[in-house]
Simulated scan of single mutants.
Amino acid sequence: MMTRWGVPLLLLSLLAVSSWLLEELGLDRADRNQRDLQNKPDYAIDNFTTVIMDEKGLPKRRLQAKRMVHYAATGIGKLEEPYMIFFAVGSEGEAEEKYAGGNPLQVYPIWHVRSEQGQVLDDGKTVYLLGKVHMWKNDDTGTMELDIRTRDLKVLPGSHYGETNQAAVIRTVTTETRGIGMRAHIKPGRMELLSQVQTIYNDRNND
């Protein structure tokens, strides 16, 4: 038999449980709304292209993609078939001579990087090139002199630097070098393979 205090205590218990359930449901709904917001893009651009200029108004690098989808909640831009180009100009002495002569500086693409997918973070300060990555360097005549194949490359465009912990293959006219993990110093054009490095030398005289 229930005492006179039993009913109020039971009601209080039910009220506490109901309040807890409502709070949990509210938090769960808020979490779902937050996840939905993060997964919802605020805009998308087909044939996306952005160009970063230097202090003289010359292009330093260009990023383009078949499609870019931006997510406001995270600030991430997801790229389809991204393609990065780093440009080069003449030396400072040559630049002064050309400006003194009234002629504009000649700018040419020197490093190219393509991948299957990509992500842009931190207002473009970090770019992840995901999936298969093809990276190559041209000389000043436009002839390819360095060809690199790897996967999942993290690029810091402002520092002219990239890195991956995946397998990489670096080919030149006379060599093929394979290794695991790579650091790419894009500005001086210096590549480092971190482990299991093997190099094969091609004797062009036997071709």
Rank of each mutant, 00 (worst) to 15 (best):
G6L: 04
G6A: 10
G6R: 06
G6Y: 15
P8Y: 08
L9S: 09
L10R: 05
L11W: 11
A16Q: 09
V17C: 07
S18P: 00
W20C: 10
L21H: 03
E23G: 04
E23T: 08
L27H: 07
R29F: 05
D31H: 07
D31E: 13
N33W: 08
Q34E: 12
Q34V: 08
R35N: 12
L37Y: 12
N39M: 06
D42N: 13
Y43Q: 01
Y43M: 02
A44H: 00
A44C: 08
I45E: 14
I45P: 06
D46R: 02
N47K: 05
F48C: 09
T49Q: 12
T50Y: 02
T50P: 05
V51D: 08
I52M: 04
D54L: 00
L58S: 13
P59N: 11
R61H: 11
R61Q: 08
R61K: 15
L63K: 02
L63G: 02
A65L: 04
K66H: 12
K66N: 10
M68F: 03
M68D: 00
Y71H: 06
Y71P: 01
G75L: 02
K78T: 07
L79F: 06
E80W: 10
E80V: 05
Y83E: 01
I85Q: 08
G90K: 09
G93F: 11
E94Q: 11
A95M: 07
G101W: 01
P104T: 06
Q106G: 01
V107H: 00
Y108L: 09
I110Y: 05
H112Q: 15
H112M: 09
V113C: 13
S115G: 11
Q117P: 02
Q117K: 14
Q117M: 11
D122Y: 12
D122K: 14
K125A: 03
V127L: 13
K132P: 03
H134D: 13
